[in-house]
Design a protein around this nucleic acid. Structure first.
Length: 295
RNA sequence: GGGCGGUUCGCAUAGCGGCAAUUGCUCGAGACUGUAAAUCUCGCGUCCUUCGGACUUCGCAGGUUCGAGUCCUGCACCGCCCA
């Protein structure tokens, strides 16, 4: 008998965190974050982390787990998340996986079998210097199937596919498999209407600036420089451009809003694929679905 | 009042006689298994089921031409300079 897991997902700024906290209070739950940016310590304002106070004594996991100059991967996330969820279940609490990183969520929902090939920096650098056409030709030989899913212009993903092929001597596409379900899962999605979401996104961006996003970015640059991958997130890259005097503050704000909107769109296009998601509008709807699910 | 320069798909931009018209952004749709807030693809005048075809477009009104976004004339609006 699989143990139960509730997933709360939705586009950025849709109110997932608030909803999840309320639900966790209601159902004796604890929260595991599924957010690829909130894993970083010291990146609080720009990633819209909930504050200690907002957490309202509900334990939150997988937030603030690594430094901004460290690397983090899907495979690590999956291991940590599964372990954390099981741990919560062992203590007879209801785990709530909450976030907007579609791939992270899918790794749990579909129990993705991630090829155990650790990123090989040297190989990646070497491949990085080759032309896309060359990488494409090589992939065509080693794993033609993968080209159905990877475009010739997508160097990053061609490199990963080659990395897996070369290291395992097997094709990458053969190894992208789903495992047996790990949990009995209920997926709840928040789908705000477009106008509302756009308004919330804009308001949140302005609030971030007021709350000291610029200071946060300055401090991060001082400690880690502006090169780490963590600084490529929305809200950070734009403020960096502003601090480097490439754009005005108004322009930076505008770009943050645009990029966030585009991100929300990409998230929705990811979520739309999963027909198991139950889309809701209100807390009460969510509460009812969960009640039915756990009884 | 005079002299230039401009007016092209939401915004910006190309176009100097064969064009439904370039490019970037926005916007819309989509892909996604160890970087995923990343990376990448497609679409974007209207209509037709398609390779494709039909129709309407480049400030407005005329003109030249087989053919005009492109040349000519007039008008309107915007920008800069001289008064």
């Amino acid at each position: 008998m699989l143990k139960k897991l509730i997933i709360i997902l939705g586009p950025t700024a849709s109110g997932k965190s608030d909803l999840a906290i309320k639900l966790a209070k209601e159902f004796n739950g604890e929260i595991i974050s599924a957010d690829s940016r909130q894993i970083y310590k010291e990146m609080d304002i720009g990633t819209a982390k909930v504050t200690k106070k907002e957490m309202d004594n509900i334990p939150h996991y997988l937030i603030n787990i690594i430094n901004p100059n460290q690397e983090f991967t899907l495979a690590q996330y999956k291991k940590l998340a599964v372990k954390t969820i099981k741990d919560i279940q062992k203590r007879n609490k209801l785990p709530f996986l909450v976030g907007g990183t579609g791939l992270y969520i899918q790794s749990i929902v579909d129990n993705l079998q991630i090829p155990e090939v650790v990123p090989d920096k040297k190989l990646r650098d070497k491949l990085e210097n080759q032309t896309n056409q060359k990488l494409y030709n090589q992939l065509k030989k080693l794993d033609p199937e993968s080209l159905k899913v990877i475009n010739i212009n997508n160097k990053r993903r061609m490199i990963r596919a080659l990395e897996v092929c070369l290291s395992t001597k097997k094709s990458f596409s053969q190894q992208r498999k789903k495992g047996k379900p790990l949990f009995n899962i209920l997926q709840i999605g928040i789908k705000p209407n477009k106008k509302t979401l756009e308004r919330k996104i804009n308001q949140r961006a302005d609030k971030m600036i007021q709350a000291g996003l610029i200071e946060e970015v300055k401090n991060l640059i001082k400690k880690y420089g502006h090169k780490p991958y963590s600084m490529s997130g929305i809200g950070y890259k734009e403020i960096i451009s502003y601090l480097e005097k490439k754009i005005s503050l108004d322009k930076a704000k505008e770009l943050i809003k645009i990029h966030t909107r585009q991100y929300a769109r990409r998230q929705m296009s990811w979520f739309r694929r999963d027909k198991k998601i139950k889309w809701i509008k209100t807390y009460l709807e969510a509460k009812k679905i969960i009640r039915d699910f756990i009884n």
